[in-house]
Every structure is written in C-alpha cells, then in structure tokens.
Simulated scan of single mutants.
Amino acid sequence: MGTFYNNAVCDIYIGKSAGKKLMEEIRSAKRNVKIISPYLSPFLIKELIFLHSKGIGISLITTDGIEDFYGNYDRNIDKLIIQNKHIDEEAKASRDNLIALSRTLLLTILGLSVVVLSLVFLLKEWRLFYGFVLVILLFLIRDFTVKKIKNKRIYNYTYRQLFPFKVFVSPDKKSFNRTFIHSKIYIIDNEIVYLGSLNFTGNGVKENHETRIRTTDHNAVGKIVEEVDHLFFNSNLDERNIQFWGRQLYPEPIN
C-alpha cells in the first residue's frame, strides 16, 4: 500500500468548519461515496444510511476505535449490522411435538389428580392416595419435557452489512496488525477527493481546527481511488469479524 502523485491541482482550506463543503458534496453525491476515517460520529453515520436508502453506493473504512459520542449516547456501527434469523424447520417440528406432549401430560396430570381425589373422598379409601405416585411421575416427566423445550434451539442467526464497510483492528488490540488506519479520505462519485486531518465526526467537520485539501484533478483522483479500493479489498489487515460482532450486539433467543 502506498501512493505518490506530484503536481496535483487542489484547493486547500485550514481552520474550523473544514467539513462544511465536504458534507455539502457528500449529500449531493449522484453515484457513490467512499470514506476512510478512523473515528465516526453517530449522526454522520445516519447521513450515510440516508444516502444508501436513496441508492447511493457507500463504502466505509474505519477502525475499532470508531465510537465518538458526540452530542448523544447512541452507538453508531450497530446500525450498519443487520441480524438475520433462520428457522431450523426440523428442530421446530421436534419442539412443537414436545409442546404438544407437555400439554397432554398437563391435562393427564390434572385429570388423574381429580379422579384420585374424587375416589378418595367418595370411597373413603385413603390407600387410593397412592395414585398420586403416578401423578408425581407424570409431573417429573413433564418437567423434563419443559426443560427440553426451553433448551431446544430452533433459531440460528447470521449477520450482514447494510452497506460495505471494513473495521480494521488497531495495533494495540493484540492483533498482528502493525498498521493503524489513520488516513482521512473522502471520495465523491470517483470525481472529487478530500484529504486532510478531519475525521468523520462532529468535532472534525465542525469544531476542530483542521486541514482540508480538495481536488478534482483527474489523474490524482484516479490514483487515490485505486489506493482506497486496494485498502478495502486487498489490504490483508486484521479486521473485526461481522458474525462475531453481531453476536455481541444482538440477543439471540434460541426458540
């Protein structure tokens, strides 16, 4: 990974609100937006989700230091991970049979209890109370059946991304990575590129004193797009596993 390009024509801005024009052009994207930012803010993720809903192609590269609780306590990456629930039909049929058996056992227990009690009081034969031995046995069988129902897994879960994104593991997370993705790059429609210091956070685009370079230089944009695509598809850097992460974010009832 690495790109060098000389003599690019560009605009330079240094100061606060460095993200104002950037956000205007992201919101006006016609085809796609590609972003590299090690940190994110929830309300800016919502901007990307809105663009995605309009059919704009989004790709995002960030790190596992993504959370920036700017202005609220929302988490952000959660909204980009979708849980899919799958039913094991064979397991469901088995569970339904167990539920039917449990109901039958319950009715049998109630009916047998009524019969035994009625006979005891009508016949004044106290030895008939031994009939409750069978009631207790049926109760234990039903209790075992209910436990099997509770432990029967009929749902399995997988996770997918709302739109393509990569979350690379930081070097201090016991990863084999030795590269921290610290670049801030924004590409709109593969025609406009922003580079600089501003993260895709509220502070980055509004409050901080930042450096922002904007270029529409065709050759420079082409080189940068090539580098970003390489990082996205062929970096071989350690990244967060979407299936593992989804299991941390969502409950997974088994039945």
Score class of each variant (00 low, 15 high):
residue 235 S to K: 04
residue 255 N to D: 13
residue 90 E to Q: 05
residue 74 D to M: 10
residue 251 P to D: 15
residue 44 L to K: 06
residue 210 E to D: 12
residue 135 V to Q: 13
residue 205 V to M: 03
residue 63 T to N: 05
residue 90 E to T: 09
residue 88 D to P: 06
residue 160 R to W: 07
residue 137 L to K: 03
residue 242 I to L: 12
residue 137 L to M: 10
residue 217 D to K: 03
residue 240 R to Y: 04
residue 191 E to L: 03
residue 128 L to K: 05
residue 9 V to A: 13
residue 23 M to K: 02
residue 182 H to I: 14
residue 156 N to Q: 09
residue 118 S to A: 10
residue 161 Q to M: 14
residue 173 K to V: 03
residue 110 L to N: 08
residue 106 L to K: 13
residue 155 Y to M: 02
residue 240 R to M: 04
residue 194 Y to A: 06
residue 244 F to W: 10
residue 221 V to T: 09
residue 90 E to A: 11
residue 121 F to V: 07
residue 177 N to S: 07
residue 87 I to L: 03
residue 105 L to K: 13
residue 85 K to M: 09
residue 95 R to M: 15
residue 169 V to P: 04
residue 89 E to D: 01
residue 99 I to H: 02
residue 5 Y to H: 13
residue 160 R to L: 12
residue 44 L to G: 03
residue 137 L to Y: 09
residue 224 I to R: 12
residue 111 G to D: 04
residue 118 S to Q: 07
residue 211 T to L: 09
residue 145 T to D: 15
residue 129 F to S: 01
residue 109 I to S: 15
residue 120 V to N: 11
residue 128 L to D: 12
residue 15 G to N: 00
residue 20 K to E: 12
residue 98 L to E: 14
residue 188 I to N: 06
residue 220 A to K: 04
residue 132 F to P: 01
residue 244 F to N: 12
residue 186 Y to S: 04
residue 112 L to W: 07
residue 21 K to F: 02
residue 242 I to T: 13
residue 210 E to G: 11
residue 212 R to H: 04
residue 98 L to D: 10
residue 180 F to W: 12
residue 29 A to T: 03
residue 250 Y to W: 14
residue 29 A to V: 00
residue 176 F to G: 00
residue 178 R to K: 15
residue 101 L to Y: 15
residue 121 F to G: 08
residue 59 S to C: 05
residue 204 G to N: 01
residue 157 Y to E: 06
residue 130 Y to C: 04
residue 208 N to R: 04
residue 77 I to Y: 02
residue 125 E to L: 12
residue 169 V to M: 09
residue 170 S to I: 12
residue 213 I to S: 01
residue 127 R to K: 15
residue 225 V to T: 02
residue 99 I to D: 05
residue 14 I to V: 13
residue 153 R to C: 07
residue 79 K to C: 04
residue 255 N to K: 08
residue 81 I to L: 12
residue 242 I to F: 10
residue 98 L to Y: 05
residue 206 K to L: 02
residue 114 V to I: 12
